[in-house]
Design a protein around this nucleic acid. Structure first.
Lengths: 180, 180
DNA sequence: CCTTACATGTAAGCTGTTACATGATTTT
DNA sequence: AAAATCATGTAACAGCTTACATGTAAGG
């Protein structure tokens, strides 16, 4: 149950409307926690009902009208509590690895092209992360909050580096495999 | 929708009962696709209803009695189709990275201890994978199926290597951060 | 006006999680 | 005979996905 906390974090960084949040979940936040607009609207309703956020007083709510939210003290407290809590890492669930394991049984027909496609996607993502790093985190120390955010971005960079490396290796293996 | 295909793969590798599958999902298969026994029993029912698997003829089904399944030709065909299909990689969803991002806003209270705990867990997992590699994949070429399975295990090893490296780096950063 | 983009929301279905229920087998 | 373990299953709920519905605002 992390979506409400992802939204609280986003709103603390900057009060936003549902659609603005959706946009931000397609970028920075979405790099490690994705969500659709339906998830976000539903969760905003719950958070408001629970008294963790409220609509900005300046704007009057109406259907089809923009409605921005900000975090209340109770919301900040809940986020701090959740952040400091001990949590177990979730077991991995990766379709591509599963498909490779299946391919060992039913044959590799068609999967090599998709490995190439994934490699390309991960290379693009890696390039994007590196560009963000160059732009937002110039060499030098910076504020503690920036160092934490840089650390998170570093995880993204290292993960994409892993995938591109592993996929490259996988494709080499395929080129040595007997043809189907 | 990958659980049925994970089960088909497991059953092709070896016909099994629900509980045996559950055990195997706690080990090898579960390293990249986890599932609880309730998910497995429900899915076995669906797969049987869809004519993709059947109970072994030798055993008569009864509540509380062991009931083993094997894959039918239609099941193998469906697995081959799914394996060769083009699929997009799922966006990352990682709670630890989210918590770090939240910590940049609400403070790092309590999170450092959990980073240490995660580092320890990932080190153990890495050691386990390396032991499996040593035991099951001795140097030398081997059969194509084995090379594919080795490739999958390699992904696990490289992923755990990434996490241990990144967590070590993260803890170094924390030691340089001003105390809360 | 008409279309497009913006903005919020409803509904249904599927997947995953947690707690519990029931019968069979083995051990003490 | 009781207790523990094996094995399968039911029920309820929470979370995510997909498709659709509704209204507003801006540009041509």
């Amino acid at each position: 149950m992390s979506l409400p906390h992802a939204i609280l974090t986003a709103l603390l960084e900057k009060p936003s409307s549902g659609l603005e949040l959706t946009r931000r979940f397609d970028k920075s936040i979405g790099y490690f926690w994705s969500a659709t607009h339906q998830q976000i609207y539903r969760e905003l309703g719950k958070l408001e009902a629970d008294g963790l956020i409220r609509t900005l007083p300046s704007e009057q709510p109406a259907r089809g009208q923009k409605k921005s939210y900000e975090v209340l003290p109770a919301g900040r407290a809940e986020l701090a509590r959740w952040t400091g809590e001990s949590q177990d890492p979730k077991p991995l669930r990766d379709t591509l690895l599963l498909r490779l394991r299946a391919a060992a049984v039913v044959g590799t027909e068609g999967i090599e092209a998709d490995l190439r496609r994934h490699l390309d996607l991960h290379r693009r993502q890696l390039a994007e992360y590196r560009e963000i790093e160059r732009r937002d985190f110039p060499p030098g120390k910076g504020e503690p909050e920036d160092r934490l955010r840089h650390l998170v971005l570093r995880a993204g960079i290292d993960l994409e580096t892993f995938w591109t490396g592993w996929l490259t290796h996988a494709l080499e293996e395929f080129s040595e495999l007997p043809p189907a």
